[in-house]
Amino acid sequence: MVGYGSPMSTSGWMLLCVTGTFLGFILPRRRPVLSRRPDDLPDEATFVTLHIAAMAAPSLRAGLTRDSARKAVCHLRILLGTSAVAVSDAGGVLAWDGGADCQRAHASEHARIALASGRPHVVIGDAFTCDAPGCPIRGAVVVPLVVDGRAVGALAVYDTALSAVLVRTVTEVARWVSGQLELAEFDSSRRRAMEAELRALRAQMSPHFVYNALTTIVSFVRTDPERARELLMDFADFTRYALSGARDFTTLAEELHCVDRYLLLERARFGDRLRFTVRVAPEVLSMPVPFLFLQPLVENAVKHGVGAATGPGEVRVVVEDAGSEAHISVEDDGRGMSPERARSLLGGDSRRGRGEGGIGLANVDARLRQIYGEDYGLVVESELDAGTKINLRVPKIHPW
């Protein structure tokens, strides 16, 4: 078996750890298939390093857990080319890879010292304890893993010899691992923010729509019991979807079904005053979309197109296939609004938007930007006495 730290052992161990196959690649070939110039070697070393880092990154983006540490530690040892590597948190060792089993019992204490100081810690000489006869391990380099200024764990490396180069290398790898954990924390914070936005949207929807829908259903109980029963089933279908357990995404088909139930209930409420059309390209029905992102826009159109008018009003929903995106518009022919009013609604102005759909529009706009980026917010076209049209784009590819 080739020794630790050699270029061939690094690539060989990488393939063995990642796939468990291609065993023929573990041993060095006596003669290279292709002749290579000496200046090709740094490029190959860079590729191997980046490839190993890319293999470890997805696990680390899940956060510092026992499962993620176990998946990443093998790649980290290959990256460093040392005898053993341990990843720990404040509770102790999460994962260990390599030889030097005699140091497993000491790894938690080594990590604790680094966590307490918040600085890299070298264990060598009299401070290094090993009871195994003939053990080649001579020391450890332990570096804290820092997230948002807090030491949340430690990367410990054990080898037969320590050097200033190894200390710098472990420090840089730990900094890279910390960066991946920072991204994991950011992803988690973004997800929590999205869940909070969704809860706020549900809380806004419930007292307004539920009261109006139930009042409408009650009005049909004596005059048209069959219609009341159908509306009650539509209401149950709508609320089961809208108030279901937390989820980030659904399909466009499911979201449109929710919109359809909503419009049927509002049609029962407004009668012939409400006209609506929904036109959808069938190619986009299966694409993933943010959960409950379209109904608030349709609700806003109903309020401004019919609820605020004395005569009839029309709501139009159009979903078009635009290659890598779906282009969606929700339009009403109501009284419209000034550009300043539109900006206040998207900004979530609590003094002017609350109770008039503003919180819902601002919520959807913020969620779209959080998920897809700043270029994917709502675009409002409106003029006084000329109706309102809300445009948005949704990429077909799932963002996570």
Rank of each mutant, 00 (worst) to 15 (best):
R61P: 00
A62P: 01
G63H: 08
L64N: 09
T65M: 09
T65W: 02
D67M: 04
D67K: 11
S68I: 12
A69M: 10
R70G: 14
V73S: 01
H75A: 15
I78Q: 14
L79Q: 10
L79N: 06
G81R: 09
G81A: 10
S83Y: 04
A84F: 00
V85L: 02
V87E: 06
V87W: 04
S88Q: 13
D89A: 10
V93P: 01
L94C: 02
A95S: 12
G98M: 04
G98S: 10
Q103M: 04
H106R: 14
H106A: 11
S108N: 10
H110F: 13
L115W: 08
A116M: 08
A116E: 15
S117R: 14
G118Q: 08
R119P: 03
R119V: 10
G125I: 10
D126P: 13
T129V: 15
A132Q: 13
I137C: 03
R138K: 12
G139C: 04
G139Q: 05
V142N: 11
V142F: 02
V143W: 05
P144C: 05
V146R: 02
V146T: 15
D148C: 07
D148E: 14
R150K: 14
Y158Q: 01
T160P: 00
A164P: 00
A164I: 07
A164G: 07
A164N: 07
R168H: 10
T169W: 11
T171C: 08
T171A: 14
